[in-house]
């Protein structure tokens, strides 16, 4: 079977429109997700079960169920109820874009909260003790030392989460959104050239991933400058 890449050129503008939708979805849900994740992570660290219980359940649910199921629950599930359709929430919930944002945000915030928690707990005990010895309050300690330190630790894992989110955003196409995948499928419905169009779409995803990786590498370099360049000294013989 021969491939015809002229369709890629013909439909490239439409693929770019889809790309823009994908970028909007990912950016918005990543930013909102991080904002939701921080308090969840802090509450999750608490040794008091009354505080850490709800975040634990939240993370457990959103990490333990497929994102597709979560999207369908928000988009098709909620709209089944007359009460939802007549509530003040309906103008938002009737829009597939906001349904996708809600599902993505909740999903990514569960993962991000775990990443944040891990980072905060990875800070050496000695630094926490040092804060206490100096006489910092808990709030001061978090604001001045722990959170900035955690930010440096979190970067590689967090960059990873953004790339996972980028790929997961393809599921938005199942609720009529014309993101990159949705647009590709709509084009294929007309041209019947799945290999060519999906290759092009895959290429665009790859380019976005490379950009994300590059940006994170730069931020990481900056944030973790104090670590210096890693060098291994080989002791001289003798």
């Amino acid at each position: 079977m021969e491939l015809d890449f002229s369709v890629v050129i013909e439909y490239f503008p439409r693929l770019l429109t889809g790309t823009w939708m994908t970028i909007k979805l990912v950016l918005l849900s990543i930013v909102l997700g991080a904002l939701v994740a921080l308090p969840i992570a802090l509450a999750r660290i608490s040794k008091n079960w009354l505080i850490s219980g709800v975040p634990f359940a939240f993370i457990f649910f959103f990490r333990g169920t497929p994102l597709l199921v979560q999207i369908f629950l928000v988009y098709y599930g909620a709209s089944q109820f007359e009460a939802v359709r007549e509530s003040f929430m309906w103008p938002i919930l009737r829009e597939p874009f906001w349904c996708a944002i809600i599902a993505f945000t909740l999903n990514t915030s569960a993962y991000t909260a775990e990443i944040f928690r891990g980072a905060i707990q990875a800070i050496p005990e000695g630094e926490v003790e040092a804060c206490k010895v100096i006489g910092m309050t808990k709030a001061q300690m978090y604001r001045r030392i722990l959170l900035p330190r955690a930010f440096g630790i979190v970067l590689p894992a967090y960059g990873n989460e953004i790339i996972l989110m980028l790929k997961a955003s393809a599921l938005a196409s199942t609720i009529t959104l014309l993101d990159l995948t949705g647009m590709a499928r709509t084009i294929i419905a007309r041209t019947y050239t799945p290999i060519e169009i999906f290759l092009a779409a895959g290429g665009i995803y790859l380019v976005i991933s490379i950009l994300v990786i590059y940006i994170f590498r730069q931020v990481e370099k900056r944030q973790n400058r104090y670590l210096g360049t890693l060098s291994i000294k080989v002791p001289d013989k003798g």
Binding site: Y76, S79, R85, R94, P96, T174, T176
Partner: peptide
């Protein structure tokens, strides 16, 4: 224009008023 993966989803969104 909104396009769905299955006809059942089309009906669901007609019922929901979307």
């Amino acid at each position: 224009l909104k396009f769905y993966d299955t006809q059942d989803s089309v009906y669901l969104d007609l019922i929901s008023g979307r």
